[in-house]
């Protein structure tokens, strides 16, 4: 699939800031209902809303911290706490998704910062060989290969900027369009496009060095 086609297919109209009607149109009405309940302190509504968003939240946090399981857990948990506290302050000035992802972004960034203060967490590409020698037990060859590819991708992802890898994740996995990403990250369309291109390119180069090709 060509990147140009894909990107143009996902382009969505820019959402003007402060336009609550346009933001409401992009959100699932049930999510909005749950968010309204959660903002009034209804824990049941909060939990239902979070269950609906859980895969997106945890996936985003994991991508932001380059698939480090420990950091991903911490980031996801911290995001939930902040969302719980921040929902009562949400005035629908931005779409719910952008609001939640924004909270996850700052929470994940804080987790990385806090962790960096405690220990230098930086797996180098040189560690590739030692990692690739570990082979999971009790799995088929396909699984072993897939897991190895996953580890390679995680190592390569660590070389990217956290914002770039989270943007790449949202674009590739969640299917977020360029303008939507621009709104979420407060970046012009051209910048989003070039950052995505550079992130993909860098990932491709790193994976090629490891003997993989990006499909």
């Amino acid at each position: 699939m060509s990147a140009g086609k894909k990107e143009s297919g996902r382009l969505t109209p820019a959402i003007p800031k402060g336009a609550s009607d346009s933001t409401a149109a992009g959100d699932d009405p049930f999510d909005l209902e749950l968010a309204a309940g959660a903002s009034r302190g209804d824990k049941g509504a909060f939990e239902r809303l979070m269950w609906r968003w859980w895969d997106r939240i945890r996936g985003y946090c994991a991508a932001f911290v380059a698939f480090d399981p420990e950091l991903a857990e911490e980031a996801a948990q911290e995001s939930l706490i902040r969302i719980y506290k921040a929902l009562p302050r949400w005035r629908r000035e931005s779409p719910l998704g952008a609001y939640l992802y924004g909270i996850c972004r700052t929470a994940s960034a804080d987790v990385i910062r806090t962790r960096a203060r405690h220990r230098a967490h930086n797996v180098q590409v040189e560690e590739l060989e030692s990692l690739s020698l570990e082979s999971p037990q009790g799995t088929g060859e396909a699984n072993v290969l897939r897991e190895e590819a996953g580890r390679m991708l995680a190592i390569a992802m660590q070389e990217l900027d956290p914002t770039d890898r989270s943007m790449l994740y949202l674009h590739e996995v969640e299917g977020k369009g360029l303008s939507e990403l621009g709104t979420m990250y407060d970046l012009p369309l051209g910048t989003v496009k070039s950052r995505l291109f550079r992130a993909r390119d860098r990932l491709g180069v790193l994976l090629r060095e490891m003997g993989y090709e990006l499909g």
Partner: peptide
């Protein structure tokens, strides 16, 4: 000899494998 990684699937698998399964409310 190069193996191919499907970016979308690999990103999703990587994220789901490293992220916690359940929220601790």
């Amino acid at each position: 000899e190069k193996k191919t990684i499907g970016l979308k699937a690999a990103l999703r698998d990587g994220a789901m494998a490293s992220a916690p399964s359940f929220p601790d409310f």
